[in-house]
């Protein structure tokens, strides 16, 4: 029994981190219909901000998190203006963004590789290798803190979306862009800010990733399928769905990893992506696609 609880706790803690990694991707798709394959590489960029802040100035990655979020959000504004804004009204926008963001991911990976090399990095605050013990059960402090911070950020995002005026505008634009525009929402501005928030969340997630996982620029390819499985299972564009899917898949992956080995744990996400697309492509909370 203790073993099951132990695995459950580890899975839940990682689920919190996955939730933050996926929620930015989900937000950007929900509002702008951008399938952002560059999201994981932007998480890597956030991880590098935390890594170098720790290495050069001794800053704790949890303290660097807002800085990484702001730097990445600003990067998001620039990317949106340069890459995405012009074609926003195209009927084939989503399809185009797959190719655009794939290219963007390659470019950013190359830039990060050139700047920081492909050496594996990890930030090592004291708590990253420490744990709480409750009887036979241990809770790694790093994963626990990362999970708690993730949930705090996601809760703040949920409150912002639910109660603020701009949150209303974002939700309205997500559900019916044309209607939102007719009611006075400047949907272009909403798109820009939502994209910046989504990329800012990638930056924040990167700070957490920097001490929970080792990372290097090309590692973002491993994360694409993981993050896609989260947003597809949750329902493309549903942040709540992404959070729920993160916990479900992280816990399943933890159990598979514990009983069948770590290699099989990663397979959980690939299988989930495959099965969901076959059986219920709209995911848990997404809308059923209309027949052409």
């Amino acid at each position: 029994m203790a073993e099951v609880i132990q695995i459950l706790i580890l899975g839940m803690a990682l689920g919190g981190v996955y939730a933050l990694m996926g929620s930015g991707l989900s937000l950007v798709f929900g509002v702008m219909r951008i399938v952002n394959l560059a999201h994981p590489v932007l998480i890597m960029a956030g991880a590098y901000v935390a890594y170098w802040a720790a290495r050069l100035y001794g800053l704790d990655p949890l303290l660097t998190l807002p800085i990484a979020a702001i730097i990445l959000a600003a990067t998001g504004v620039i990317l949106y203006k340069l890459v995405f804004e012009r074609e926003a009204r195209s009927a084939k926008y989503s399809e185009m963004t797959v190719l655009l963001t794939f290219a963007l991911a390659m470019v950013l990976e190359g830039a990060l590789g050139t700047a920081f090399t492909n050496t594996q990095r990890v930030t090592s605050p004291d708590y990253a290798t420490d744990a709480f013990f409750i009887g036979d059960i241990f809770i790694p402090k790093g994963q626990l803190y990362a999970g708690i911070v993730s949930l705090a950020i996601i809760s703040a995002l949920a409150l912002f979306l639910k109660y603020s005026r701009f949150g209303y505008a974002i939700r309205a634009t997500t559900q019916n862009r044309e209607a939102a525009e007719l009611l006075g929402v400047n949907v272009n501005f909403v798109g820009l800010v939502s994209f910046a928030i989504g990329i800012g969340l990638a930056g924040a997630a990167g700070s957490l990733v920097s001490f929970v996982f080792s990372f290097f620029p090309a590692k973002h390819w491993e994360w694409i399928a993981v993050l896609m499985s989260l947003v597809v299972l949750g329902g493309m564009g549903s942040i709540f769905g992404t959070v729920l899917a993160s916990f479900i898949l992280a816990v399943i992956a933890a159990f598979i990893g514990a009983y069948f080995g770590a290699t099989w744990s990663t397979l959980t996400f690939f299988v989930a992506l495959f099965v969901v697309l076959l059986v219920r492509p709209q995911g848990i909370f997404g809308e059923k696609p209309e027949l052409a």
């Binding site: 005026r165 209303y168 505008a169 939700r171 309205a172 559900q175 019916n176 044309e178 209607a179 939102a180 007719l182 009611l183 006075g184 929402v185």
Partner: peptide, 22 residues
């Protein structure tokens, strides 16, 4: 418009609030 331009996953009250967004 023809499609009524509502926000299906918002409540009635929230839809009314959107009516006064400006």
């Amino acid at each position: 418009p023809q499609e009524r331009a509502l926000f299906p996953k918002m409540t009635v009250r929230e839809n009314l609030r959107m009516g006064g967004f400006s």
